[in-house]
Every structure is written in structure tokens, then in C-alpha cells.
Design a protein around this nucleic acid. Structure first.
Length: 887
RNA sequence: GGGAGUUUAGCUCAGCUGGUUCAGAGCAUCUGCCUUACAAGCAGAGGGUCACUGGUUCGAACCCAGUAAUUCCCACCA
């Protein structure tokens, strides 16, 4: 046996085993009718992204689930891939070009896309490489990308299909316009910020009387289409239907009435500016008002503003205020706190802007998606998310699927010279339609222009569980039939609506069934101050550095020690340290076993006497077997309920506490004359078997160290791996033996405690006397008591002997401390015990003498209480005797 | 403004049908140990009015109502 390092050294082995796994294709999956499929599709990270702590947690969970399923004999398939992430990637490319002095607007679409692809080729897949460091057991040959041809075509086909079904339409909508980036941004990329603003009170004169309105945006008065008051508002009833003049430009507008207006706020009069406010737009629609857009794409006033043309919106605001003051229309200014939307990318204040967009009708599509989550066909874990899901799905609005970007799936809509729109998968098909449907045979491809916009990123990722198996392009292929529906999805709750719900929708629409059975929602990884980890805050550790420092296994376990589903994880490097320490513990436990000299089992003719397995070793072995089986059952239960941290913790505890602290100490050969005695072959073999099983048990969490040790335990078949070894199933549990050992541990810890309190060295063996009616019970564990507690001798007595006494389970145990005895102290300790148990007995008696308790409580509870009383009485008797003996 | 969740040890969380062997775990802290696998360790210990107030019940961390703190989601009254 070669010298093994005293500490576990992950760096040396991780790359080695990962390569071994890949070379042997353990993660490769193909449809196998003889096996049950287990499938996970990865939430595709941004193609140009780098691994952050959220990915680490998320993907570790996926890997644990996948590895366990694989070991359970399922056909495990974890499909990796990346998302083109149109806005994020385009923003990065634009920024990169800017650094090179290139303006996106100076480029043609084709030129720009070329840069995007270059960028994707350069950075794409870094994140997938990083996942390998983590040990992710993805089937890398199945890696997909949302912009690759097959997936691109799927998106286009789905668009055309939904359009043909009448679910996709074009319509006006107020979008979030970023005047700096000159693009629309989605709602989720708008960050609301509290700002201190001014509320301007402005008087609009009219022949029948004037009104005063309150606004934070005086620069938009030139876009006003009406003044609105509440129909019941006595102050203004007489003005309804009358005209007033917009100050400065003297354009006439009408006073209208709508219940939307609150009488309490401001003056009770609202200026209606349909082009520049979401609610005003809705009001305008309702009342048929004119839409006057006075802003340019840069956020400057245009000709329609009549005055201050060319001024920036915020400059204009100040100037208008001043002009209004001069004209006498400004009644007053007030400080006012409100919120404004800002662009996540540029920080610019978002301008609501009317534009023509593509929409997907959601009502019909979302019905099965709502129903099947509510009836648990698809389970959300934790289930508390059902509430928010329900609310969202019941109030679902049509999905605006167009984006004013270039990087993405270009909308397959083609316009004829007269502006008529034809939706078709490509220009050729569009032309065919133009010719056949519109009889425009003279038309050629060059007469058709394609829509400039691309589709929302989610419009491709919502197809992911189907498209990764080519379920659109080849709907009846072997993969989709075998792997779909998938089993588990692991993702963040923030994208429950954007992504998860929509995948469920597309699943029912295109496959007629759910895309996955369980949705495990992770929390957010936060820093110690509770802040979300983000690049801009710089508070996120680099996962790869963590792996180098603590080992992949250490980081994996560290992240999952305490992160129940749906709960945020306040990350602390200490957790990784704990994970690393655990690796080390396992490593050293194995080193201990490796270091033992084994006595030959059969030494006939050798002249040497072979060591027999001692009764103590045999018993220890039987106990651990039972204990492990029990823990396996509990752990499997945790897994089945997706209590991942609990599953990890019970695995951690059985290794650290039951194996290392108890079992190994029990069977550890004695040390004589500076040399460890050999261990018997039988115990040695059985211990290696146990280790083998424990490595399989921990493998989903700690793939590297478990493989390393598993391979060292014995010579394995060529190309064998723990990855495909059997996950422990558990077995019989001998409860009475477990109870005996509980007694053993209690005695051992009592003796150790006493030693500690009396400052007696653990090396000094102490004699123990036991007064009991059940001597045989103690005899079976006597050897182990001696070894674990360093007891020199055990005597069974009928009268208390000299020494420190304790009552455990009604029996009296006395440790002979020789000179160290302090009668008063001992009496005090016994008295304390007695007081407690007497109080306990009293409360139990009170309960049992309560008629209503006896009548109402379940029989087993009643029985339990009666047993408690009997136990308490036994213990009291023993304690009293012990005390009496001391005088 | 609407909705949902959370509140248990210093920290992060369990506590699954209400039943004092149920007030727990891990980490942290403290005490004693370089004991012949591991100081990245060993043996121990301390620490909680289960947010607060009421109610239901023989019995409440658990069920109900209210209050407070806090988080998230949705909407965003000019």
C-alpha cells in the first residue's frame, strides 16, 4: 500500500476522473426501452455568460438528481445547452463595438450579426466548460443552442403555426423605450426607482371656466388629448364636454369624464396624454382620443411639440415650467415622491412609447397550464409557489413577443409593397402566398421586405424541452418519444412565469402533455449582508476559484448543506470549508482502514494463528448495517420529497458520526507495544464493503472523492465506475439492536463526561459497576463499553459500590473514581436528576388523572403516557436508593 | 394599493396527522485534549417566553383571529 496523503487533495484527481467519465461515455444517453428514462433539461444559461453562484447551486442539484437516477438503473439523460439571450448578448456586442469605435447604427444587419456570431463563438460555451469543473454529468453530445439551425427553424415554425391558428396578431402597445439605447426593453428589464420629483399644478383656461391639473411631466402638455375628471365630481361637472386651452400652445382640448380619475388626488383633474403614459393610453383608447407623439427616439421634443423642438425631455421640463410661470399658468409646485422606471442596461429613464408589436393571445393557451399545476399533475416544489402561479395565470395578458433587436429569431413576416403582411416561414413561401392568395403573379422576392424585429428570447426557450429532442422538426423521433415528458426541472422562482409557465403552455399545445413532472425552485444565492450576488456589486465569488480552493466536492456540498427549496442561500465561504473538511474526513477514514494490517483468515499450515472475529466487532458490524439501512430509508424519503439538504445532512451524519465516531472506533484494533494489532479478515472485508456502499451513497453529492476511493477499495473491472454502480437501497433494520446501542452511547458519553468534569485523562482506565435486573443486555455490549469509554472492568452488583453513580434507563451505574470522589458533588448531581424526574412524573400523573385526557386522547398516546410514568417511577426508585446509600 | 410567504439557539434552517423521552440539526461560541486516520481533528458544555396578543382544545411551535416586523410577486393614481 503506497503512502497516502494526510489530507485529501482534490486537484490531483478531479480532472483525471472527469476525463475518465467522458472517455467511457457514462453520461451518454440513448433511448433504451428496457430502462425507465430519467430526463432533465438544463435551464440554458446565456451563451456568453460565465458561471456564477446561482448556476453552481442550480446545477449541483440537477447533477445530484441525475447521478442518483443513473445509479438507480434509470436511463439518465441531462441535456445541456445555451440560450442566445438576445438582449443581454446584443448589449454586450454593442458595448464591445463601441469600445472599437463602431456604432451599431452604422452597420448593416448582416454585419452586426456577424459580430454577434463571432462573439458567440468566442465566449459561447465557456460556461459549459465550467460546468465540467463542477462535475456535471451532462450528455455533452446533446448540447443544444437556441440559435442553431434546427432550433431556429422550430421557433419560426411555431410562430407560423400559431399565427395560422389565429393566436398571433399585431397591435399597438405601449412599450418601454430606452432613449439612450434606442430600443425597447421588456418589463422585466425595467428597474423601478424611487425619485424625488416635483408635482406641477397647471391652469388650463377655458371659456366656461378653467381647470388646474397636477402633473410631474409638464413637458408633455403639448401632447395632451383631453382633460379628464370624475363624472361624480361636483366641482367639475359643469365643465364636462366643454373646451379648455393647452397653455403656451393654445390648442383646444375637451374635458371628458371617467371613473378612472380619483377625486382625491391632486386637483381631481387629469391631463390625458395617450402617447406618453400607459394609463392615459388606455383612457385614450376608451374615449377615442387622438394620439400625439411629441418625442423623438432620442427622447427629444419633435415638431409636433410646436415649441422647444429639439430639446431634451428633461431640459424641456424645466423650460416649460419656467414658461408656464411666466405666462401665469403655473399655480404651484410641490415636492413629490414617486417611482420611475429605468433601464437595467443603460440606466436611462424609460419612456413609454406607442408602437406596433406582435402579440400572442394567452387566454386559450394558458388554460391547461393553469389547471395541471393546480391539480398537481405538475408539482411545484415548494408548493407555496402555486399561489403566485395561479394569480399570474388567471390574470395573464397577451404576450408581446417582438423585440426591436437584431440578435435573435427574426420574425417571419413579410410585407408587400402596399404594406400587406404575409406570415410564412421564409420569403419563398411568402411569395407563393402572395401570388396565390393575392394573385400578384408579377411579384418577386425582392418586392417583399421582412419584418425588422426579432422574437423575445423566451419565445425560443419556451420550446426548449421539446426542441432539444427535435420534437418540432421531427415530431415522431425516438428521442422525443422516449425522453418527453421530462422528469424534473430545476430553476429559479424569478422565471416561473417568463419561462416555466410558458414551457408548460407550449408542452400542452404541442405535445398534449406536461413538459416535466416536478419543478424544483431554488432560492437566490445572497452574500452575508443578504444582497443578491451580482457582477456590478462585485460580491460574488468566482466559483472556479472556489473549486480550486476547496475542491468541487467541497463546494457542491457546501452550497447544499442548508438550502431548502425556495429559500435563499446566504452564502459564506465557511460552507465550502465545511464541505472540504468533510472530504477530508472521508479521506482519512479511508486512510485508517487502508493502514490496517490484516490477519489472514485461514492460516492452516502456516504456523500462525489467524485472528478470529471478535464478538465486539461482529456486533458493531451488525449494528452499523442496521443503522445504515435505517438512514438509507430516511434519506430516500428525503430525496423523494426533494428535501435535498436533509438528504445530504443525513448522509453526512451517517458517515461522520455513525461511521467515523462510532463504528470505526469500535472496531479499531488495539494498540500494543507501539504497534497496532492486525484486524481480522472478516471485519476488514465487511468494513470495505460498508465503505463501498457509503461511497455509492455519497456519490451524487461528491462524485470525485467517491470515485477515487471506490476505485481504490478493490480492483474494478476495466472501464467500471461508481457512476454506474448501484445506489444503496437499504434493508432490514433491527430496532432493538439500535436501542441497545443507544444505551451503549449513553453510558459511554456519561463516562467520558465524568472524566472530563474530573479532569481525568482519557488514557486512565476506570472500573464500572452496574446494578441492573437485565444483566444480559449489558453483557452483549460490555466489550464495546470497555473499548469506547476506556473502562477497565465491568462488575454486576446488587448494592451500590463506592464511586460516582448515575441512573441510566432505571439502572444504576457507578464509576470508581478512586481518590477523585466528592460525595457532596455527587449528591447534588443525583438530586438534580431526581428533582427533574419527580416534576416530570407529576405532570404525567396530572395528565393521566385528567378524565378528559383519558377520554379523548388516542389509545397509543395514552399508552405512551402510562409507560412514561412507569419509567419515571423506576428511575426515581433507583435515584433515591443511590442517594440513600450516600447518606 | 392588491396578493402571497416568512418570523423557532449568535447564524442558516428542520420540526411531515396538535400529544414534555420534542424544543432539534449543522455551523459558530466556550472548556479540555498535538490520544498511534483526520487540529481541515477528538471529547464535552452552554445557548431558545418557538415574533406579540387573544381564542379553540384535556393538551398548541403546530389550528383560528388580530397586531408587529420582514421578504417576494403583481399594479404603479397623474
Amino acid at each position: 500500500m503506497a503512502e497516502i496523503s494526510k489530507t485529501y487533495n482534490p486537484r490531483e484527481i478531479e480532472d483525471k476522473w472527469y476525463k475518465y467519465w467522458i472517455d467511457n461515455q457514462y453520461f451518454r444517453s440513448k433511448p433504451n426501452p428496457n430502462k425507465e428514462p430519467y430526463t432533465i433539461v438544463i435551464p440554458p444559461p446565456n451563451v456568453t455568460g460565465v458561471l456564477h453562484m446561482g448556476h453552481m447551486m442550480n446545477n449541483t442539484i440537477q447533477d445530484v438528481l441525475t447521478r442518483k437516477a443513473r445509479m438507480e438503473g434509470k436511463e439518465a439523460c441531462w441535456v445541456p445547452g445555451t440560450d442566445h439571450a438576445s438582449i443581454a448578448t446584443e448589449a454586450k456586442v454593442v458595448a464591445m463595438l463601441k469600445d472599437l469605435g463602431i456604432n451599431k447604427n452604422d452597420l448593416s444587419r448582416e454585419e452586426f450579426l456577424k459580430y454577434c456570431w463571432e462573439w458567440t463563438d468566442k465566449y459561447g460555451g465557456i460556461i459549459l466548460q465550467q460546468l465540467r469543473k463542477l462535475g456535471a454529468s451532462c450528455d455533452w453530445e446533446r448540447t443544444r443552442f437556441t440559435m442553431e439551425p434546427s432550433l431556429y427553424d422550430a421557433v419560426i415554425d411555431v410562430f407560423v403555426d400559431l399565427h395560422n391558428k389565429g393566436d398571433i396578431y399585431r397591435g399597438h402597445r405601449m412599450v418601454n423605450w430606452d432613449p439612450q439605447a434606442k430600443t425597447t426593453v421588456s418589463d422585466e428589464e425595467v428597474i423601478m426607482k424611487d425619485v424625488q420629483q416635483k408635482l406641477y399644478y397647471i391652469r388650463y383656461e377655458g371659456e366656461e371656466g378653467s381647470v388646474v391639473i397636477a402633473t410631474t411631466r409638464p413637458e408633455t402638455i403639448m401632447a395632451d388629448a383631453a382633460i379628464c375628471v370624475h363624472p361624480e365630481d361636483e366641482r367639475y361637472k359643469h365643465l364636462i364636454g366643454k373646451k379648455v386651452l393647452i397653455p403656451l400652445i393654445n390648442r383646444e382640448i375637451t374635458v371628458i369624464a371617467d371613473e378612472y380619475v380619483s377625486m382625491e388626488f391632486g386637483t381631481g383633474c387629469l391631463k390625458v396624454t395617450p402617447a406618453h403614459d400607459q394609463n392615459d393610453y388606455a383612457l385614450g383608447q376608451k374615449h377615442g382620443l387622438e394620439i400625439i407623439d411629441i418625442l423623438t427616439d432620442e427622447g427629444k421634443l419633435n415638431e409636433k411639440a410646436v415649441i422647444l423642438v429639439g430639446e431634451d425631455r428633461f431640459v424641456a421640463r424645466k423650460k416649460i415650467a419656467k414658461m408656464l410661470a411666466e405666462s401665469g399658468n403655473l399655480v404651484k409646485e410641490e415636492d413629490y415622491k414617486s417611482t420611475v422606471g429605468t433601464s437595467e442596461r443603460t440606466g436611462a429613464i424609460i419612456e413609454p412609447k406607442i408602437s406596433l408589436q406582435w402579440f400572442l393571445k394567452m387566454k386559450r393557451l394558458s388554460e391547461p397550464a393553469l389547471e395541471n399545476v393546480m391539480n398537481d399533475t405538475i408539482q411545484l416544489i415548494p408548493p407555496k409557489f402555486k399561489n403566485t402561479y395561479k394569480y399570474w395565470m388567471e390574470n395573464v395578458r397577451d404576450w408581446c413577443i417582438s423585440r426591436q433587436l437584431w440578435w435573435g429569431h427574426r420574425i417571419p413576416a413579410f410585407y408587400m409593397p402596399d404594406g400587406t403582411c404575409i406570415v410564412a416561414k421564409d420569403k419563398k413561401s411568402a411569395l407563393k402566398i402572395a401570388r396565390e392568395k393575392y394573385q400578384l403573379y408579377a411579384l418577386s422576392e425582392t418586392d417583399l421586405t421582412q419584418d425588422e424585429d426579432v422574437l423575445d428570447t423566451w419565445f425560443s426557450s419556451w420550446l426548449w424541452p421539446i426542441s432539444v429532442f427535435d420534437g418540432f422538426q421531427d415530431p415522431d423521433n425516438e428521442d422525443i418519444n422516449y425522453y418527453y415528458p421530462t422528469n424534473d426541472l430545476v430553476t429559479a422562482p424569478e422565471i416561473l412565469f417568463f419561462w416555466v409557465a410558458r414551457m408548460i403552455i407550449s408542452g400542452y399545445e404541442y405535445k398534449g402533455t406536461f413538459p416535466f413532472k416536478n419543478v424544483y425552485l431554488t432560492g437566490i444565492v445572497r452574500d452575508k449582508q443578504g444582497r443578491k450576488m451580482s457582477k456590478s456589486l462585485g460580491n460574488s465569488p468566482d466559483p472556479i476559484e472556489l473549486i480550486e480552493k476547496y475542491g468541487a466536492d467541497g463546494v457542491r456540498t457546501g452550497m447544499l448543506f442548508s438550502s431548502p427549496a425556495g429559500n435563499d442561500l446566504p452564502f459564506d465561504e465557511k460552507l465550502c470549508e465545511q464541505g472540504r473538511n468533510f472530504s477530508n474526513k472521508i479521506w482519512n477514514a479511508f486512510r485508517l482502514i487502508q493502514g490496517w494490517e490484516v490477519s489472514p483468515q485461514s492460516a492452516i499450515g502456516s504456523g500462525r494463528r489467524s485472528a478470529q472475529q471478535s464478538a465486539g466487532n461482529k456486533l458493531a458490524l451488525t449494528w452499523f448495517r442496521s443503522k445504515l439501512n435505517k438512514v438509507i430509508a430516511e434519506t430516500l424519503d428525503h430525496y423523494s420529497k426533494f428535501r435535498m439538504s436533509d438528504a445530504l445532512m443525513s448522509t453526512y451524519n451517517v458517515i461522520w458520526d455513525d461511521l467515523c465516531s462510532q463504528y470505526l472506533e469500535m472496531i479499531k484494533p488495539a494498540y500494543v507495544d507501539g504497534k497496532s494489532l492486525p484486524i481480522d479478515q472478516e471485519t476488514y472485508n465487511a468494513t470495505l464493503e460498508i465503505f463501498d456502499e457509503l461511497m455509492r451513497f455519497i456519490h451524487p453529492w461528491m462524485p470525485f472523492i467517491s470515485e477515487e476511493i471506490w476505485q481504490t477499495i478493490k480492483t474494478r473491472a476495466v472501464n467500471d465506475s461508481i457512476c454506474i454502480a448501484e445506489f444503496p437501497k437499504g434493508g432490514e433494520v433491527n430496532e432493538s439492536l439500535l436501542a441497545d446501542f443507544e444505551l451503549l452511547f449513553e453510558i459511554v458519553s456519561t463516562v467520558r463526561n465524568t472524566r472530563n468534569a474530573k479532569q481525568i485523562s482519557p488514557k486512565e482506565a476506570l472500573p464500572l459497576a452496574i446494578k441492573t435486573d437485565n444483566q444480559t443486555r449489558y453483557e452483549s455490549i460490555a466489550d464495546l463499553i470497555k473499548k469506547m469509554a476506556n473502562v477497565s472492568d465491568i462488575q454486576y452488583v446488587t448494592e451500590k459500590t463506592n464511586g460516582m453513580s448515575f441512573v441510566i434507563k432505571g439502572d444504576e451505574l457507578t464509576i470508581d473514581l478512586g481518590e477523585n470522589i466528592d460525595i457532596e458533588e455527587e449528591k447534588a448531581a443525583l438530586q438534580k436528576d431526581l428533582d427533574y424526574i419527580v416534576g416530570f412524573k407529576k405532570s404525567t400523573e396530572a395528565k393521566l388523572s385528567n378524565e378528559r385526557f383519558v377520554q379523548n386522547a388516542k389509545p397509543e398516546i395514552l399508552e405512551k403516557e402510562r409507560q412514561k410514568l412507569i419509567d419515571a417511577e423506576t428511575k426515581i426508585k433507583a435515584l433515591e436508593e443511590a442517594l440513600a446509600k450516600l447518606g
